[in-house]
């Protein structure tokens, strides 16, 4: 019987080390401790059995689970922008997801994507609750000094959509977007919005005469604009934007690794494949 239990322990120890997922390994380690506690009781060591039972099964498992609960994860916060990073039928999809998943695998962390509102982005990254900002991010999108931008993986245009005739009101723009590079736009003319949906609704209702956004968001939002409006609208290109990611300015190591990964992926042509897959 004792030999049988010892062989069970042997099998469990091998099983712990063969696990791919850390959580499974931790739970198996708890079982390992439980079986060893049974052996101690069996061979006349009840003091050791009680102590090993309480520590090995309860405490060690608990602190491992707590330590795992946050670390070993790459926290990505993003706005939902359809071709880039979005959810469909409960499943994450998009070109940025593929890139970030590859990056997370490269640095041995588990990817965790959290969709948040436009306004929460900076506060979350400032409070160290998240590591990477994604979701059609481009330099200048958030006027935040605490951020550092990664290399870009795709280029696109910053565009202005406005009604061709008979419109009044200002030009809509998202809060915190920095337009200092594009001086054509008059600051007094702008009205700020806290989310894309709100801005599109205001445009639909005729409260503003147009809005400025990058073309990725623009094409996503055009689906939500009524058909007559879409026919009446005119799109003007203001400049170029480079889609990339952002990390907190203090996280230099993470930025280095992200840049290394993006360079490598661009060189191997993986990014081009992904872009042609997702943007047809």
């Amino acid at each position: 019987m004792l030999i049988l239990f010892s062989l069970l322990l042997l099998g469990l120890s091998v099983a712990v080390l063969l696990q791919k997922r850390l959580l499974n390994a931790v739970i198996l380690l708890g079982v390992f401790s439980l079986v060893s506690s049974v052996i101690y009781f069996w061979i006349g060591a009840p003091d050791v059995a009680v102590t090993e039972g309480a520590i090995g099964v309860a405490f060690v498992t608990f602190i491992y689970v707590l330590a795992l609960s946050d670390q070993g994860k790459l926290h990505v916060i993003a706005e939902e922008v359809p071709p880039f990073l979005f959810q469909e039928k409960g499943e994450l999809q998009g070109v940025e997801l593929e890139i970030l998943r590859g990056f997370a695998e490269e640095i041995n962390l588990e990817l965790e994507v959290e969709f948040v509102g436009h306004q929460e982005l900076t506060s979350l990254i400032g409070g160290r609750r998240a590591d990477v900002i994604a979701g059609a991010y481009f330099p200048g999108y958030l006027a935040e000094e605490e951020l550092s931008n990664s290399k870009s993986y795709n280029q696109s245009q910053l565009a202005k959509i406005h009604r061709s005739s008979g419109a009044k009101g200002g030009i809509g723009i998202l809060e915190e977007t920095d337009l200092s590079e594009f001086t054509e736009v008059n600051e007094e003319d702008l009205s700020r919005f806290s989310s894309l949906e709100e801005m599109v609704r205001a445009y639909n209702e005729g409260r503003i005469r147009g809005f400025i956004s990058d073309s990725g968001r623009m094409s996503a939002s055009l689906y939500r604009v009524n058909t007559p409006l879409r026919d009446e609208s005119e799109i003007v290109t203001l400049g170029e934007v480079k889609y990339g990611f952002a990390v907190s300015a203090e996280e230099e190591n993470l930025l280095d690794r992200l840049n290394d990964y993006l360079t490598e992926a661009a060189r191997s042509g993986r990014i081009d494949d992904l872009l042609s897959d997702h943007f047809r």
Partner: peptide, 28 residues
């Protein structure tokens, strides 16, 4: 052999438990 730090700690834990087991079992 494991490169993951947490896996290393788990292995260390196994070594601990098995050593204790050895000490208790050798006089049984």
């Amino acid at each position: 052999l494991k490169r993951n730090l947490l896996m290393k700690l788990l292995s260390l834990n196994i070594v601990n438990t098995a050593t204790i087991l050895f000490f208790v079992l050798i006089v049984y």
